[in-house]
């Protein structure tokens, strides 16, 4: 289990969390390379399909991260994302997905330190959960 390196697909909004990731980089903060970042303009555009496809293709975790409440560049995209994540958690739970594999966080553009902390924490959590069974078993 200890040498298991999870793959975590991350959808970061351009305005807050992606900028925080940039800040973490320019501040020379390190965070696990398990996080595979997809930059999107807003977490409100993360279609449930992106999350489902990630899991079916064998992602061990999916992280969606955007702006803090009230800070959304498009006013309320992050609130819409929250409802979609709520929906996905309800659906995936029936099929034995641990809810910890799908996460939504809000990290502001200036929170480089917090960003690196959360990435480390998420990676540690997924490591302890072990691999997603979709990666191991043939799924249709």
């Amino acid at each position: 289990m200890n040498d298991f390196e999870p793959t975590i697909v991350a959808f970061f909004c351009n305005w807050c969390t992606y900028t925080a990731a940039d800040l973490a980089g320019t501040s020379r903060l390190s965070y696990p390379s398990n996080i595979k970042i997809v930059r999107v303009m807003c977490t409100g555009m993360v279609d449930p399909k992106y999350v489902i496809k990630s899991f079916l293709e064998g992602a061990d975790g999916v992280l969606i991260s955007g702006c803090n409440p009230g800070d959304c560049h498009y006013i309320n995209g992050n609130f819409k994302a929250r409802r979609r994540i709520k929906l996905l958690k309800e659906i995936l739970a029936q099929f034995g997905f641990q809810p910890e594999r799908l996460r939504l966080t809000w990290i502001g553009a200036s929170d480089g330190i917090r960003f690196a902390e959360i990435m480390r924490e998420m990676t540690a959590q997924i490591k302890s959960l072990g691999p997603n069974e979709g990666r191991l078993k043939m799924v249709i």
Partner: peptide, 29 residues
């Protein structure tokens, strides 16, 4: 979502609305 399909024309479909303070359990690590 505390919703029942077809119950009322006045209840909006869950994915077509949101509130500022809801589902705190969904957010965070």
């Amino acid at each position: 979502f505390g919703y029942a399909a077809g119950r009322s024309l006045d209840e909006k479909p869950p994915l077509s609305e949101f509130r500022e303070n809801e589902f705190p359990e969904v957010v965070g690590i």
